[in-house]
Design a protein around this nucleic acid. Sequence first.
DNA 1: CGCAATTAAGTTGTGCACAACTAAATGGTG
DNA 2: CACCATTTAGTTGTGCACAACTTAATTGCG
Lengths: 156, 156
Amino acid sequence: MTTPATDWLRLDQQICFSLNAASRAFNGVYRVVLKDLGLTYPQYLVMLVLWEHGELPVKKLGEHLRLDSGTLSPLLKRLEAAGLVRRERSVRDERSVRVRPTGEGVALRERATEVPRRVATATGLDLAEVQDLRARLDRLTAALDTYGTEAASTAS
Amino acid sequence: MTTPATDWLRLDQQICFSLNAASRAFNGVYRVVLKDLGLTYPQYLVMLVLWEHGELPVKKLGEHLRLDSGTLSPLLKRLEAAGLVRRERSVRDERSVRVRPTGEGVALRERATEVPRRVATATGLDLAEVQDLRARLDRLTAALDTYGTEAASTAS
DNA sequence: CGCAATTAAGTTGTGCACAACTAAATGGTG
DNA sequence: CACCATTTAGTTGTGCACAACTTAATTGCG
């Protein structure tokens, strides 16, 4: 309550701006590192989940990545066109589409093993710093998410 | 050198992922808060710069925001269509287009004063935490940026 | 059973990010 | 002056994020 509004104004601008810039910078690094694999960064995230879980309906994939079908459907279509995944309607529930990596998709994992190390190097951070930053960001995301859902509770 | 590759793999995944999630969560909050003003978050950033500097060529605007003309040109066109800015070729250098807020654009600043406070509230962080996080992110961005430009220095 | 509500994917439309390119103006050099 | 490299915007094309909507299948309830 002691800080004048102008301070908040300035700082707030910078936190969101810094976050945005960092996110885009990360994207740039991934773009370079993933070029060889022919993957974009979001596609890489999808493959990471699939490598870990083997096969998932689009819904579950979206929960892991916080993405909806509007984003995933075309992305998965591109991955399928690239021969990395296959999509097939579930027999038990025909609303559901199960996504799973093809042989080629699984094989790509080998070539992707160097990606994390390269990116980690690019950050210039050590393990502890990364862990700490990640924890802060997750807390921040959780706080921001509740605002999204609860909203309207602003004392106007 | 003591950490097995799998740790890096897992952590790295999470830092980029956390950052991405936080960035999108922030975007969501701004989307809600800026709705009344009829601005998107990137448009808001442009207006912030213009409110501070009054008038700038597209080039300078891009340097402030780390954005190129491919992003700014259409964005500025939309801001102009909304009556918030005017673009005019510089007389001194006809390659340059100077952007400046219209009366309506300047007036919007009044209505935007509450935005930072609302967003700051949504973060659930205090000033010191915000400042600290911002500093970390800026350092991270700087490190990632050098990778982008220097690249190829990987010991293959 | 029959029908409304729900759920899963997909589609459409808008806007942003960025690479690659074009067009036009400027500046420097012979 | 003539010419070429550089600079500034803009355009085109691809891909992602998200809101709003559609379609089809499933579930639940009377």
